[in-house]
Amino acid sequence: MPADFPTALVLNAVVAGLLLGGFYAAVSVGVSISFGMLDVVNIAHPAFVILGSYIAYLVNDRTGFDPIAASIVLSPLFFALGMLIYRIYYLCFEKRGQESLRGLAFFFGILFITEVALVLVFGVDYRMARSAYSDTTWRLGPVDFPMRLVVPFLVSIAMVIGVQLFLTHTFFGRAVLAVAQDALALRLMGVNTFRVKEFAFALSIATAGVAGAFLIVIQPVQPSIGREYIGLVFAVCVLGGMGSIWGTLAGAFVLGLAESFTSTFFGPSWAPAVSFGLLLATLAFKPAGLFGR
């Protein structure tokens, strides 16, 4: 190992990259479902993440309940919200074949409306949720494990694996994959593809709600902070391979590790360039992404 790359720094960079990747995976898995599988360009996904942050904050502030546990308990609400939004999107745009540009404008509108609603309800100040583990760090030799990143990482991995198992091991999940592959064929077999897509889109919004709780545990949040993640979530989704949940996880880890190593050894301002350089290189050699078919 060269002197410039001491073991402790490398180990910590690996751990930090994986923990960050876990968070990125949670934020991106919903986009992988909506954009990758359903072909719904939900540009408002980060706004739902921020909405999840504020709901977790509200419960945490009023009851002291753990924000991540609260987000899991309240995920059916986000699921229902997702169903409602998809229903509007379907009736107004998809059904009429106007989903491409007008659908995009619709989700932009949702993004702005969500931000403004959050400003009106919560104000513009930064909010952060407190938890029993927020200020705790485990140390294993020279390696640090800050719990405010470890807990979101563990729950995120469980959520991503859960989504993958659901999609591959349940009848409804396989129907979602089938819609992603060939919606027309499914319709010809008599399947109500609207119901399948509605369910899958709702699932993607439910994951956004949980990811929002991760965010507000990790850093302070204000209503418009979601915009900063739009590029990132789509990059993870494309890097991993459109519609592949394992690909999303791998893409998130690749970007997390790239950011962590670049920040540690070459300077943090290079991190976005390296991450997006990796994305371009991957697409050049494997246009379908890491796990794309």
């Binding site: 001491p6 720094l9 910590n12 960079a13 930090a16 923990l19 960050l20 968070f23 640090d144 800050p146 990143l149 990790i218 850093q219 900063e228 993640y229 990132l232 950011e259 962590s260 190593f261 920040s263 540690t264 050894f265 300077g267 943090p268 301002s269 991190a271 976005p272």
Partner: peptide, 20 residues
């Protein structure tokens, strides 16, 4: 002497590099 992007989530790589 370095700068970081405004949307940085995890500052541990930066502070560890500084500590080094």
């Amino acid at each position: 002497d370095k700068t970081y992007p405004p949307n940085t989530v995890d500052f541990s790589p930066i502070l560890r590099a500084i500590q080094a």
